[in-house]
Design a protein around this nucleic acid. Structure first.
Lengths: 217, 217
DNA sequence: ATTGACATTGAACGTGCGTTCAACGAGGTT
DNA sequence: AACCTCGTTGAACGCACGTTCAATGTCAAT
C-alpha cells in the first residue's frame, strides 16, 4: 500500500543495513536487488527509487562498511614508553591481525569487493583508499624504527616498511580465510617475532609479553 | 554443419584454451558458455556436450591452469653452497615473488577463483591444494634455518616459517595487483632483507647480491 | 550399401536478473 | 475540500544466462 512512510535518509539506512545482512549471509554473489528489498521489507522498485542502480547500491554499501568498521587505524600514534620501536611495530601488526580475524565475515566481503574492483574503477578507488589508510597506520612506528638505527635502515622508507607490514597481514588473512585449520595466525605472529627481533635473551621476554596479551579466535 | 570432426580429447583441449583466453581477457565474470563457445569457434551445445555443466568447465579450467603453470615449486630442494639458510629462504621468496608478478593475469584469475572457492567446495579444495604446494616449496629452507640455530628457533616449526613466507608473498601480490603504482615489490623485498638479515656489514653485500639478480616488471 | 555410434548444430525453454513505469495513497499546503 | 508532492507498490519488460533436445551430417564397421 503506497503512501509516504519514512524520510529518505531513514529508508536509505534501513536498506543499507538490510543489504549488509544479505551480503554477510550470501556474499556479493547473492546480493540481488530483490533479495535486499525482501530483507528490508520493501519492494524492489522502492530500492531503485532510493539508490539509482545496483552499482550505486554496491558502492554505497562499501562506503557504509568502510565508515562503519573495518580499519582500526588512527590510534597508536605515539610510542609506548620503554618499548623498542620494532617491538612497537610488531605489537601494532599483532593487534591489527587479531582484529581482522575477528571480523572474518567482513574481510571475506572485502575480498569480494577487491575482486569486483579489478573491473570497476569506482570500487577500485574506494578499496585503494581503504588500504592506504590501513598502511598509513604503520607509518609512525616504521618511522621510529628507521630513526632509531639510521645507518642500518638508510635505504628504507617508512612507506616501504608499512607496505611490508600490510602485506604480511593481508597474506595472513588470505590464508586464514581459505584454510583456517592449517594456518594459525598466532603461530605466524610468533614466527615473525623470532625472525625479526634480535636474538638476545632479554628480547625474548618482550616477545612473550607482546605475543600473549591478545586472544585469537 | 554437424558431423564428427575431432576426437574428444582434442576438442576438450581446444575449448579449455579458448576458455582461458576469455577468462584472461574478461575474468570469471565474463566467462559465459556462449563466450567460450564463440571464442573456440563451436556451438554452445557442443561445449556442454564435452563439459557436463558450467561448473564442470570452471573446475576443469582451474585444474588446467594449475597444471599448466602458476606454482614454480619443486626446485631449490638443496641449499646452494656457502649461502646462509636465511639468505637461501629469502632468495626463494624473492624468486617466487618475481615469478608471480610476471604472470599478473593468471594471479588475478586465481583470486577470482579464490573468491569463488569461498562458496564452492570443489574449487576451494583445488585452491587449498595449490596453496599448500606453494607453501611446501619453502619448507626445506625453513627447516635448514631452524636446524642452524636450534636454540633460537626452538618454538618454531618449518611449517610456520613457510606459512609466513607464503603470507608475505600473497600480501605483496594483493597490493601489487590493486595498486601497482604505489606498491613496489622490489622495495618490499629489500625491506624484508634489512629487517631479517643480521645487521653486520658483511651481510649487506649478500643482500645486494640476492636482491639484484632478478628483474621486476 | 546399410547401419550405428557420435560429434555437432540451432533453436528453443525456463529462469533470474536489473530496470521501468503507471497507478496509488498518505502527508502537507492552499 | 481540493491539490500537489513524493514515497511506495506490483506488474511488466527485456535481456543474458545455463541448459535441453530433436535433427543432422560424418565416420567407421559391417
Amino acid at each position: 500500500m503506497p503512501g509516504r512512510k519514512a524520510p529518505e535518509s531513514v529508508r536509505r539506512d534501513e536498506i543499507l543495513r538490510a543489504a549488509y545482512r544479505v551480503a554477510a549471509r550470501d556474499r556479493l554473489g547473492g546480493l540481488t536487488i530483490r533479495a535486499v528489498a525482501t530483507e528490508a521489507g520493501v519492494s524492489a522498485g522502492l530500492l531503485l527509487f532510493h539508490f539509482e542502480s545496483k552499482d550505486g547500491l554496491l558502492i554505497d554499501l562499501l562506503d557504509w562498511m568502510l565508515s562503519h568498521t573495518i580499519v582500526a587505524g588512527e590510534f597508536h600514534q605515539r610510542a609506548p614508553a620503554g618499548l623498542p620501536p620494532i617491538a612497537w611495530l610488531l605489537s601494532i601488526v599483532e593487534r591489527d591481525l587479531a582484529h581482522l580475524l575477528k571480523q572474518r565475515e567482513r574481510v571475506e566481503l572485502f575480498y569480494d569487493y577487491w575482486v569486483l574492483g579489478t573491473r570497476h574503477p569506482v570500487i577500485r578507488r574506494l578499496i585503494r583508499r581503504a588500504l592506504h589508510r590501513y598502511r598509513d597506520a604503520f607509518r609512525p612506528a616504521a618511522h621510529a624504527i628507521i630513526a632509531s638505527q639510521p645507518e642500518r635502515y638508510a635505504q628504507l622508507t617508512a612507506d616501504d616498511l608499512a607496505g611490508v607490514c600490510a602485506a604480511f597481514i593481508e597474506g595472513c588473512a588470505t590464508q586464514t580465510i581459505l584454510d583456517p585449520s592449517r594456518f594459525n595466525a598466532q603461530r605466524a605472529m610468533v614466527t615473525l617475532h623470532a625472525l625479526i627481533l634480535p636474538s638476545a635473551g632479554a628480547d625474548t621476554s618482550s616477545l612473550a609479553h607482546v605475543a600473549s596479551h591478545i586472544t585469537y579466535p
